[in-house]
């Protein structure tokens, strides 16, 4: 059974159709990359999957259940987690508190009024493990807004991991990073256990070819083509849509 299945998703913003009848299915354990030029509908599609946007029509099934109308947080409790393209952390709180809050999100006792949050030994222990794995433990008491951009991106990817998701949705994880930082992120994503299914949006082809088993190219809200990394690398249409063809540059201008 597919872990995630979408059925003819349409999203209209006024007169603009951002996503046009997207159907795709992702098997457990797969590593899938969504690529496509700006405005192809990748992030919109992500927002439909995680519930930030309701599709105009179509349905989303996760673990065999129709979750089209589920709230964002309910999907997280079902085992979905996402990162954001534009870094979306808790800038006024410390690195440690960011991770503790992320860990608490799907755990019991998140409405607890009686215990001191920062003295929750169980959470702190898991947070330490997670922070050490992304090499941010030494910065745990720093306010997030004072971190360097590369460190913030690492935290951005660590937060969804806190809920040990079955499906991890990464929206341009290496966005704005240096090549060295980017290859570090690539190896971290590759090293995620086989239990985590990954769907990611990426522009960085080293990341795509380094991680993905299947690549899907979106163009104007539709699947233009999909295949393995080799197939995509060889595909002429990908070159034209994604890298831009010489004809479209010289011809139409």
């Amino acid at each position: 059974m597919a872990l995630l299945e979408t059925n003819r998703i349409f999203v209209h913003f006024g007169g603009l159709a951002a996503v046009k009848g997207l159907s795709l299915s992702i098997e457990p354990g797969e590593r899938v990359a969504l690529i496509g030029p700006n405005g192809a509908g990748k992030t919109t599609f992500f927002n439909v999957l995680t519930g930030q946007i309701r599709p105009s029509s179509g349905s989303v099934h996760f673990k065999g259940m129709d979750i089209t109308n589920h709230s964002v947080y309910a999907r997280t409790h079902m085992g979905m987690a996402r990162s954001f393209q534009i870094t979306s952390l808790f800038p006024n709180l410390s690195v440690m508190v960011n991770v503790l809050i992320a860990l608490q999100g799907i755990r019991r006792g998140r409405y607890d009024l009686r215990r001191y949050f920062l003295k929750d030994k169980e959470l702190v222990a898991i947070a330490q493990e997670l922070l050490e794995s992304v090499a941010l433990w030494d910065l745990r008491d720093e306010k997030v807004s004072s971190l360097a951009y590369g460190q913030q991106r690492k935290l951005e990817i660590a937060l969804p991991l806190a809920s040990s998701p079955d499906l991890l949705l990464l929206d341009e994880p290496s966005c704005g990073l240096t090549p060295a930082e980017s290859s570090d992120i690539t190896s971290r994503i590759r090293d995620l256990g086989p239990k985590i299914t990954v769907l990611m949006i990426a522009h960085d082809m080293d990341l795509v070819f380094g991680v993905a088993e299947r690549v899907i190219l979106l163009h104007y809200g539709e699947i233009a083509c999909e295949g393995t990394c080799e197939e995509i690398r060889a595909n002429q249409m990908v070159k034209e849509i994604y890298m831009g063809s010489r004809k479209s540059v010289t011809g139409t201008w």
């Binding site: 709230s71 964002v72 947080y73 997280t76 808790f90 999100g105 409405y111 806190a162």
Partner: peptide, 29 residues
């Protein structure tokens, strides 16, 4: 004081800072 330093209180601080992220982390904001 206990409330603002509890699990609940830190969830409130998180909502103050970034509510969309809180929802994505599984909080019914």
């Amino acid at each position: 004081y206990r409330i603002v330093n509890s699990h609940y209180g830190y969830a409130l601080r998180g909502i103050h800072d970034n509510e969309r992220r809180m929802q994505a982390l599984g909080y019914n904001t």
